[in-house]
Simulated scan of single mutants.
Amino acid sequence: MIKLLRQYILKQQGEETDNNGESIKIVDGIVIGATPTAERRAVSEPPGAAFEAKGNQHPGEEEDVKSKKAVGEDEGEPTGGPEVENKGAGVMKIKRGRPHELEGFFISLKAAGRSERTITGYESDLRFWNKVAAKEKKTVYKLKIKEIEAAMVGRDVNTRRRNVSSLKALGRWYLRDGFPNLHVELEKLAVVKGKARIAKAKTEEEFKKIREHAKELVKKGDRRGIWIGLMVCCGLRISEIQNAVAGKDWVQVRGKGDKERRIPCPPWIINAMYKTPGAGRKGFMKKRQVIDRALRRLGYSHFHSLRHTYATILLHRGVLLDTIQQLLGHSSISTTQIYAKTKIPEGINEVLEED
C-alpha cells in the first residue's frame, strides 16, 4: 500500500519508478536519474504504438534496436518491449515479424530485366529451399546457417552454387525491405567454388557434319535447318531463336538481360530466314520447347553444346577471345575464357622429344 502511494505521488511530480522501485524521471523518452538497470528498461513509443509480445507483427511495424548489435540478429520471438539505445542518429530501425510474400521477389526480378528462363531457375531453386524450410517447420526467411549447410551436403558443386546464389538474391531482397535475418545467416556461409569444367563442344569433323545436315534441311524447306544453323554457325542460344531477325549478312537477337546484339550469319541461313515466315504455325521463330521437341526427333540433344562448338571452332581458327565474347553476348570475359581451356598448346610434344 505504501509502495503504491509513493508511486502515485511521484507520478504527480512527473516521475516514475522502475521495476526495482527506484525513482526515475522520463522527459521526451530520456531517462533522468536512473540506475543502469532502469535506463535499459526505459521505453519510448509514439502515441498509439502497440507492441505485440508474441511477435506475429505486420511487416510495417518497426522497433528500435541497439546499433552496436549485429544487424538482423535473430533472438527468436520477442518477449517484451523493444530496446532503445539513447544515441539519437545511432538508433537503427529493423522490421520484425513475417516478411512479404515471395511474389514480390519475382516481380523485382522482372523489373530488373531478368530473362524468363532465369526467373524459372530462381523458382526451381526456391522450391528446393521451401522444402528444406518445411522440414524444419519454418519459413525460408528463418533458416539458420546450420540448416542451410546441412541441405547442401551431398549435392553437386554447381547445383550448390546455383541454390546458394538464388537464396542470397532472396536474402538481399528481404534486406532491402528491412528484414535482415536471412542475409546475415548467408554471410556466414563459406564461398562454394564450382567445378573447373571444359566446355562440351563437338569435334571439327562433327561440326562439319552438323553444318552440312543443316544445309540439306534448308534446301528441303525444313525450318529445322534454320534452327540448327543459327546455333552451330551463329552461336545463338536456343531461347534466342524466337526473336531472331535477319539482316543483310547478319542476324540480330535479344539475349539475356534484354540486350541486343548482331552476329555475322552465313548467306544460306539468311536466305532461308527470308523465305520462311517468322511468325505463325510454320514459322521459324518458335519457343525453346517447340525447337527442343522437334530437333530431338532428328537425334539431337544437349543443344547448348552447338553454341559451345561455335565458340570453340572460332577460337581454334584464330578469332580473338574478346571478339568471341561479343558474338556470344557474354557480359564478362571470364565467362568466355572457359573456351580457352579447349585449346591445346602447340609444340609441347616436340619439345619433349628433343635430345
Score class of each variant (00 low, 15 high):
residue 240 E to R: 05
residue 246 A to G: 14
residue 279 A to L: 14
residue 267 P to D: 13
residue 241 I to A: 09
residue 268 W to F: 15
residue 236 L to T: 03
residue 254 R to Q: 15
residue 214 A to G: 04
residue 245 V to E: 12
residue 263 I to Q: 04
residue 267 P to Q: 14
residue 251 V to D: 12
residue 229 G to W: 06
residue 228 I to R: 02
residue 241 I to T: 07
residue 272 A to Y: 00
residue 225 G to I: 04
residue 256 K to W: 03
residue 239 S to I: 09
residue 250 W to R: 13
residue 258 D to Q: 15
residue 271 N to K: 15
residue 224 R to S: 07
residue 215 K to I: 09
residue 274 Y to N: 14
residue 244 A to S: 10
residue 243 N to F: 12
residue 265 C to L: 01
residue 230 L to E: 01
residue 272 A to P: 07
residue 232 V to N: 11
residue 214 A to V: 03
residue 214 A to M: 06
residue 229 G to H: 10
residue 266 P to L: 07
residue 275 K to H: 12
residue 236 L to Q: 04
residue 254 R to I: 15
residue 224 R to G: 03
residue 257 G to M: 10
residue 230 L to A: 05
residue 226 I to L: 06
residue 272 A to D: 04
residue 224 R to I: 02
residue 247 G to M: 07
residue 258 D to P: 07
residue 234 C to K: 07
residue 267 P to F: 09
residue 249 D to P: 11
residue 272 A to R: 03
residue 214 A to N: 04
residue 260 E to H: 10
residue 223 R to D: 06
residue 217 L to A: 01
residue 226 I to S: 13
residue 260 E to F: 15
residue 225 G to N: 09
residue 251 V to W: 04
residue 235 G to N: 12
residue 274 Y to G: 07
residue 237 R to K: 13
residue 239 S to K: 08
residue 214 A to K: 05
residue 249 D to L: 12
residue 221 G to T: 05
residue 241 I to S: 08
residue 257 G to I: 00
residue 249 D to V: 00
residue 253 V to E: 08
residue 217 L to P: 00
residue 268 W to I: 08
residue 218 V to D: 03
residue 238 I to C: 10
